[in-house]
Structure formats: C-alpha cells, structure tokens
Nucleic acid binder design. Structure first.
Length: 201
DNA sequence: CCCTGATTCGC
DNA sequence: GCGAATCAGG
C-alpha cells in the first residue's frame, strides 16, 4: 500500500480528530500504526494542538539499553524543547438536543457486540469523588453520543439519559483498556469499597 | 498486558 | 519517503 492523496487525507482528518494511530491504521488498512505515525511525522503534524500543544509523550533519554542482538548503535540525541506557552482554547460547544452529527460510518464496523455486557448501574450521583463526577460531567459534554448499534468493544458503554426518550445515548469514547467504559466513567463505575464505606460522615 | 506516540535507521 | 524495530510512558 502506498500513501495516496486520499489515504493521506483520511490520515490527516482522523489524526486531527484525535484518533489514535492504530485506529487510523485499521481504518486505512494495509498499514501498521507505525506507518501511520511515521507518516504523521513526515507530514509535520506530529502534535495535534496545532500551536502551543505538545506531545506529552516525548521524553528522549540519552542512555542506551542492552540490545537483544546485533543492532545499530543507538543514538538518542537532539531533544526537542517547546517553550511555547500553553494556549488552552475552549470551544463553545452548543450541544442542546440537536441530533449529533454523524461524520461517517465506515470500516469501523467490524466488531459486533457480544450482547453479554450487563448494563452499567446508573450514576447515582451521590458518594462519588467530586473530581470523578466533575470529570464525567465534562466528558458527557464531549462524548460521542453514540447509539446502541454503534457500540463496539472499544466504545464506552456508559449510558446517558433515559432509554425511553430520544435523549438517550452512550458515551462512546474510547474505553479504558480491559474495561467497558472510558477513563472518566471507569472512575465512577468502579468505586473502591473504601470510599463508599464511611459515607456516614 | 493492554495501549499510546516518538525516534531511529536500513531500505 | 517508508515503516519495522525500538523506546518510553500511561
């Protein structure tokens, strides 16, 4: 496979949307996530925030490790510094009861839900960590709001709203590994027994 | 172990 | 230019 204009376009789009390299690779097909990342870098759009944003995962170390076999001598050098001040841009999300835009449904359709997942308990917003709750509220604003049919094993299955109304959707954000929910919802779904214990305060 | 992106370097 | 191998981190 080669990087045709169309494929590059998809790459750019998805990367811009914050999709992970592996997701993009799967979507495109015929390439690995490494290829995607490599391409991303060569295209010069390594960081997603345009300006000011930094890849938080960039920590060049200058120490070689034991190589398994005869490999080239490692050269870790030229660390990049980006002294740019962060410019957090808040997007005025106008999410009322409007139908969520459905950008596109494509090859992301491959995993059928086993139908085994028990529905999560509704967030009885009571004794959950204020932080976790705040986070969830945040997330629910930016959630993908997908429908039942759109659930995959990799989409957060946290339900929001009343199933009896059309105000019902699933979070749909990328799940925490191993969990059925995204990070934020894992936070409220799985409470340490300790925290709910002495709620009698 | 699952994942993420970053970097290097032979091709 | 490409991407596997590797690295580093969550």
């Amino acid at each position: 496979m080669s990087w045709t204009d169309e494929r590059v376009e998809v790459l750019k789009k998805m990367w811009g949307e914050g999709q992970s390299a592996s997701q993009i690779a799967k979507e495109l097909g015929g390439v690995t996530r490494n290829a995607v990342i490599g391409k991303v870098h060569r295209l010069g759009l390594s960081n997603r925030a345009g300006s000011g944003g930094n890849a938080k995962t960039a920590a060049p170390k200058a120490e070689a490790k034991a190589k398994p076999a005869a490999k080239a001598a490692p050269k870790k050098a030229a660390p990049k510094k980006a002294p740019e001040p962060e410019a957090q841009v808040e997007e005025p999300r106008t999410v009322s009861a409007s139908p969520p835009p459905q950008p596109k449904m494509s090859a992301a359709r491959r995993a059928i839900i086993p139908a085994g997942q028990p529905l999560p308990p509704q967030p009885s917003a009571n004794e959950i960590s204020p932080e976790a709750l705040a986070k969830v509220n945040e997330v629910e604003k930016t959630a993908k709001k997908i429908s039942l049919m759109e659930l995959t094993e990799k989409t957060c299955k946290w339900p929001v709203g009343d199933p009896a109304t059309d105000q019902f959707w699933f979070c749909g954000l990328p799940v925490q590994q191993g969990k059925p929910y995204c990070e934020a919802h894992v936070g409220v779904a799985f409470q340490p027994m300790s925290s709910r214990r002495d709620r009698r305060r």
